[in-house]
């Protein structure tokens, strides 16, 4: 332990070289390995934001849990919201291997010092939104997340493997719901189109600003935290989604959307980046209510968590001192 701390305190050429070599060889950095401070800080910020997104992301869909129009859909949606809590937990645990505490991260979330994905600052207005979130939002998330399964930081990569497997159910249930609605009544089809119109552009913005505006991309790519640029991932998402939209029979609200034969991909319009900036800075339709709900749950639960700690301490005090007995 002592030598490990010294190795981190002093910029140790050998340790840094070893780190670079492991990353270059596509191997994984593990929690006790030496790593550059900036690498650690970048990962903590990214994983925490990712974890916060899972937890806050429960709210827009949770909004329809009590009103889900069939018991089957209710069960699916509850299982999905539960998975999101689980994913948040996996990710907070990955962040904790970097030396932060979940309680600190929660504090940062509810005090607004750490962000979560801006997509969750939009309201869910009809039950079709549940399907569109599964299809578009989870679809975009999967595009972002699959490359993270090969991220250079071991605990994050392993969390992502598990999350991606579970998330693929989320996207498919969303698409299946939309197919059902599109085969349904005229009102149901209108609900779907309306939801697609509202969620399409925010979904594209989930990949972040364009590469030219994304100063950290190069460094994250060198560290193998990031594998593809924002624009590459956005393009992949559009190429994947357009045929799905056609199959579904919905229109994507982008007049510039057209197939580019030359490069074998879809051209599409520029999202309104000023809107993303506003939402990131707290001016989205739901920023206040999302954080407020999370804060209320955390604060209302404090007495419960404290009771559990007090109870555990009482039980521990009752235990005979087994260590001494074992020591003999």
């Amino acid at each position: 332990m002592v030598t490990a701390e010294v190795a981190e305190a002093v910029p140790d050429r050998t340790a840094e070289e070893r780190f670079e070599a492991v990353v270059a060889a596509e191997q994984r950095i593990e929690p006790r390995d030496w790593m550059p401070d900036a690498y650690r800080a970048t990962l903590i910020r990214q994983i925490a934001q990712h974890a916060h997104s899972e937890i806050i992301g429960m709210q827009p869909e949770g909004n329809w849990l009590t009103r889900a129009p069939s018991l089957r859909r209710k069960a699916i949606l509850l299982a999905k919201a539960q998975d999101e809590a689980g994913h948040g937990l996996y990710l907070y645990a990955a962040a904790e291997t970097l030396g932060v505490d979940r309680a600190e991260l929660t504090e940062k979330l509810i005090s607004g010092r750490q962000k979560y994905s801006s997509i969750f600052n939009y309201p869910t207005l009809t039950f079709a939104d549940v399907g569109v979130i599964g299809w578009l939002v989870d679809g975009a998330a999967i595009c972002n997340q699959v490359p993270l399964c090969r991220c250079s930081y071991g605990p994050y990569a392993r969390a992502m493997v598990r999350i991606c497997k579970e998330e693929s159910f989320h996207q498919r249930q969303g698409y299946e719901l939309l197919m059902t609605l599109m085969r349904g009544t005229e009102a149901q089809r209108r609900m779907v189109q309306d939801a697609v119109d509202r969620w399409w552009w925010p979904s594209l913005m989930m990949f972040g600003p364009s590469d030219a505006e994304s100063p950290n991309t190069a460094r994250s790519m060198a560290w193998r935290i990031k594998r593809h640029t924002n624009d590459e991932l956005r393009q992949r998402f559009v190429d994947m989604t357009v045929p799905q939209a056609q199959h579904l029979g919905v229109t994507l609200p982008d007049p510039e959307l057209r197939w580019n034969e030359e490069r074998g991909g879809w051209d599409f319009g520029e999202p309104d980046w000023s809107e993303l900036t506003r939402v990131i800075h707290g001016q989205g339709p739901c920023n206040t209510q999302r954080v407020e709900r999370r804060r209320a749950a955390h604060e209302d639960g404090a007495w419960v968590r404290e009771a559990a700690v007090a109870y555990a301490a009482k039980r521990a005090a009752e235990q005979p001192h087994t260590e001494e007995e074992n020591g003999k």
């Binding site: 919201a81 539960q82 209302d300």
Partner: peptide
């Protein structure tokens, strides 16, 4: 139980309460 979703006192309890809800719903 579903009404507890996003309101539980700790994240581990979110997962637990949802499991109870899913059992009863089933």
């Amino acid at each position: 139980l579903i009404e507890w979703c996003t309101r539980a006192p700790e994240l581990e309890e979110e997962v637990a309460l949802a499991n109870l809800g899913l059992d009863l719903l089933g």
